[in-house]
Simulated scan of single mutants.
Amino acid sequence: MSDGSLDAGPFFHGTKAALVPGDLLEPGRASNFGAGDPANFVYLTATMDAAIWGAELAAGDGRGHVYRVEPTGSIEHDPNLTDTRFRGNRTRSYRTRDPLRVVAEVTGWESHPPEVLGQMRENLERMKADGIEAIND
């Protein structure tokens, strides 16, 4: 439930976690990026591509999943992917301190090519080595 000024959705979340409709995604779990500190937010996007990146890059073993989700409260621009670090919000990425409700699993999505995925993983490792952490406040 956005305040209407950000995005009408639909919204997606990519992860390695196996979830079912009705499950709630809540802040407080270990972040998939940086040192893995507990995340103060849950992240969502209005683009399938960004959700696929989330599914592919999430910590953990197993295959990635993309879920259609509904915010249960207000959302804000994700400063990790918007004006704080990059101009605009091309990935239509947001975060919330409120739970996200899983509506359905999205099936049939295609992974990024292995060489592109490898480059992204290298970039993330470089950022980690440089001490660049996710903005978590």
Rank of each mutant, 00 (worst) to 15 (best):
M1L: 14
S2Q: 08
D3I: 15
G4M: 13
G4I: 12
G4Y: 09
P10V: 14
P10H: 10
G14K: 05
G14A: 07
V20Q: 12
P21G: 04
G22W: 01
D23H: 10
D23P: 12
D23G: 06
L25K: 01
L25Y: 00
E26H: 09
P27Y: 01
G28I: 06
G28Y: 02
R29M: 09
F33H: 05
A35R: 15
A39Y: 06
A39N: 04
A39G: 07
N40E: 10
N40K: 12
V42M: 03
L44D: 00
T45K: 07
A46P: 14
A51Q: 00
A51E: 00
A51N: 02
I52R: 07
E56I: 06
E56A: 08
A59H: 05
D61G: 14
G64I: 05
H65S: 05
Y67S: 05
Y67N: 03
E70F: 09
T72N: 05
I75A: 10
D78W: 09
L81Q: 05
L81K: 05
T82P: 07
T82I: 12
F86W: 13
F86G: 03
R87F: 14
T91V: 13
S93C: 08
Y94T: 09
Y94D: 01
R95T: 13
T96L: 09
D98V: 07
P99E: 01
L100W: 01
V102T: 05
V102I: 14
A104E: 10
E105M: 02
G108M: 06
W109Y: 12
W109N: 02
E110G: 12
S111H: 11
H112W: 10
P114V: 12
E115A: 15
V116L: 14
V116E: 03
V116C: 10
Q119M: 15
Q119N: 12
R121C: 12
E125F: 13
R126C: 09
K128L: 10
A129Q: 10
D130N: 08
D130G: 08
D130R: 11
G131A: 09
G131S: 08
I132V: 15
I132K: 03
